[in-house]
Design a protein around this nucleic acid. Sequence first.
DNA 1: AATCTCATGTAATGGGTTACATGATTTT
DNA 2: AAAATCATGTAACCCATTACATGAGATT
Lengths: 191, 191
Amino acid sequence: MKENTGKTKYVLLGMLAHSPQTGYALKKSIEYEYSHFWQESYGQIYPTLKVLVREGLAVDDSESGNGRGQITYSITEAGTAVLKNWLSEAPDVEKLRYEILLKISFGANTEPEVILRHLDDFIVRNDNLAKDMDGFVQMLEYLSAQGDDHTYSQLTALCGKYTYTAMRDWAREAKRIITEREIEKNETTNS
Amino acid sequence: MKENTGKTKYVLLGMLAHSPQTGYALKKSIEYEYSHFWQESYGQIYPTLKVLVREGLAVDDSESGNGRGQITYSITEAGTAVLKNWLSEAPDVEKLRYEILLKISFGANTEPEVILRHLDDFIVRNDNLAKDMDGFVQMLEYLSAQGDDHTYSQLTALCGKYTYTAMRDWAREAKRIITEREIEKNETTNS
DNA sequence: AATCTCATGTAATGGGTTACATGATTTT
DNA sequence: AAAATCATGTAACCCATTACATGAGATT
């Protein structure tokens, strides 16, 4: 009987604390709102929701279903307590895996053009994401001004903006450095 | 017979392309040089090295051992080819999991002080890491000036500097925003 | 009627860490 | 002599994704 569901449990509790939702809706929200720093699959979400119910942290609140066989979950008081307790604990140090940085650190094993191409793609992607995040921040700013507070969501979007911008800027600088050193190298061999 | 070892294979090939090493040394190098964007455990490294040998991408080069039961691996020509081919492929889009951002997005469920405390820790950690990375960049700059080129390693360190700095700056801004809005809230209730 | 989207669920598989076992050499 | 470090290895476990199965309601 394994009930160890990692962080998924808390993600769902945090979202249910905002409003009762179905597993399907939770997944969609995670994709839309949290994709730049978190992801969950159905294979995690559905079993974890059942665990939450079994542990009394959420309840199956299906009378509010729309007749489509869906299950709406709500957080319980016990769930809110568990959530709050988790919030107070120091967050884990994140373990990142940037494949592009691996490729760059091994860059000497291929032509500079290969690395420059990866950097170009990276710049485009991060520039777009930075803009998306900025739009998100603006939208939440507007909603907050209208009365309903979105400060905390706005802060996570702002973090996305900062990191994507930093990545884009780094990649531009990296391109510059590679190109510059290539020129130097060619000058030395040709003289 | 599963030979699916994910990215580990390429990490090891990339490192062996630089110099023949033991599994133990590879692990230490990953911790020291790549920890800000990659990690591998012995449970991945040792079995993968055997796979590399079985596939002819690396060879057990133990005559260069120091009599301590250690196994030194070298990359083969086939290994170099596989490495170069992988380098040319578009890197995966990274899947991040920032627990701190989860906690911040659920921040409305606890006292602002709890979130501010997490942000303080985050600022300190990222500021230190940014400084470490900067030192690393400087050191590699010096080594490169001495003749042996470390451009690509330097670029990954530079990326670390950019991201840690961005994270630190974001967290400072986040603190400012939270504090500001808390003051506003108190002013409204007190009037 | 066909297709799309909503909706739930699970089994297989993959990928990775942790904990443990073992032992040699080096340092204190 | 003890402790630390070097060094290799594996089994148990955990976490997560993918692929598949199923079916209802909405849309074309």
